[in-house]
Every structure is written in structure tokens, then in C-alpha cells.
Amino acid sequence: MENLVLHLDNIQKNFAGLRALADVNLHIEKGKTHAIIGPNGAGKSTLLNVCVGRLAPDSGKVIFDGDELTGLKPHEITQKGVARVFQTPEIFQELTLLENTMLPALSKRDGAFSFNPFRTMRSQTDINDEAQDILEDVGLAEQMKQIAGSLSRGDKRRLELAMCLILRPRLLLLDEPTAGMSRHDTNQTIELLNKIKKGGMTKIIIEHDMHVVFSLADKVSVLARGKIIASGLPEDVRGDPVVKEAYLGGAQE
């Protein structure tokens, strides 16, 4: 049990009588990449939203590294070391790439609020270096003076990933990190995610693309109709008849 970092205990969530999550129990191992798959409407995004405090569960608890996250605000959860990549990249469109990455670096160093109107950004050399390094890592260093809104979709996603990585989170949640990407961009993203795997960061990935799941995940859980119906190694889950039923049965309709 010691190497478990995130516990979801009996999470339930209803939307106006519709059961989105029915009694979800999930335990995530430290340093592993855990993929959550499942047919559309299975409650995958709801589950992530519960983890980061965007939605409050009707009942159940989210426990991260011994701290209960349920009831905390998104910025508090983020300060505890949980970062999230969104389905459509959430970046600062009007700011430059460098500013986009310096901002989370400041958050990491100074916390949720710090009032320092008389320091200049130019004097923050540590922040500046850190931001440049991370842009280098994701391959966007050359564009760092550009406005983020001008990037291609794939680059925006890489920028968002950089913004999350600079927070040095202990848990990274990725909501369909390759949705809408070309095969080439997808492979690049997989490469990038595999690269940061060595850092010992725990990751939860929600993904439709089985190619991505099987190239990244250490463990896979299948969510269907608000319940975890199978959990295990990727090869085992792939062969599980219950999973085939839930997946293919739904897909053929």
C-alpha cells in the first residue's frame, strides 16, 4: 500500500439524476502511468474533474499522498502537486511562450499569491532560465518570443505540457493528450511523455487512441457506465471479455 499515491474511494457523482460515476474505487501506483479508457460517456472526464476539484463528488473521497483533496479549490490542489493538461489546450493565448512558462514557474516559487509589484520580470533570472530550459525540452525554444495564440494545435499542447511540467507536479493528469493530432504529432507526444516518465512522476491518462494507451501505460483501467469494470496490465485488459463486451458492444450500435 505504501507505493500508492492516489486513492479514489467510493466516488459517486450524479448530474440531475443521471449517474455519471457510480461507486468508483481506484488506486494509482507511484511513478506509474495509469491509463483510463472506456466508451464515450463512461464518466472519464468527470472522474478527472473530481480529482482536480473542478467538480465536487456527491460522496466519496479523493486522497492524494495522505492529504484529502475533496473540497479543496483547484489552485489549492495544484499547489499540492497535481497538474492537469486539458482536452483543448488551456494556455495564455495573448502572452508569449516565455511568459506562458514563466508564470507557472513563479507560481511554483512564490505560491498561490505574492504581491511584488516593484520587482521586475527581467530580474527574475532563475525563473527565466527555468522557463527557457523547459521550452527547450519540449522543442519550442526557438519560438519563445512568439505569442502563444499563433502556435499550431500540436505546439499549443506541447506548450501546455511544458507549463504543467515546470510546476514539477507529483501527479500529472492528461485528458486525451493526443486528441485531434496527426499521427506524426501523436508519435512526438508519446515520445515526449515517455521521456518525462523517467522523472518518477505519476501520470493518469485518459485516452481513446489504443495506440497511445499501449505505448505509454503501465496499467489500464476500464470505465464503463460510471464503474471500473476491469483493471490490470495492458495485455490482460486487452484480452478481457468483459472489456470487449463493454467496448465493442457499445461501438457496434
Binding site: 482536480v52 479549490k73 483547484p74 489552485h75 489549492e76 495544484t78 499547489q79 497538474a83 492537469r84 486539458f86 488551456e90 494556455i91 495564455f92 493565448q93 495573448e94 502572452l95 511568459e99 508564470l103 507557472p104 507560481s107 511554483k108 505560491g111 498561490a112 499569491f113 507549463m163 510546476l167
Partner: peptide, 17 residues
Amino acid sequence: RGIKSNQNRMNYTGLNT
């Protein structure tokens, strides 16, 4: 300026807006 640009990302960057 971050607040003007994207409050949601501000929150998920751990900043209390």
C-alpha cells in the same frame, strides 16, 4: 495579464486569482 488571458489556467497553475 494572465487573469485577463485565461483564468481557468491560472487556477490550474496553482494561483489564487
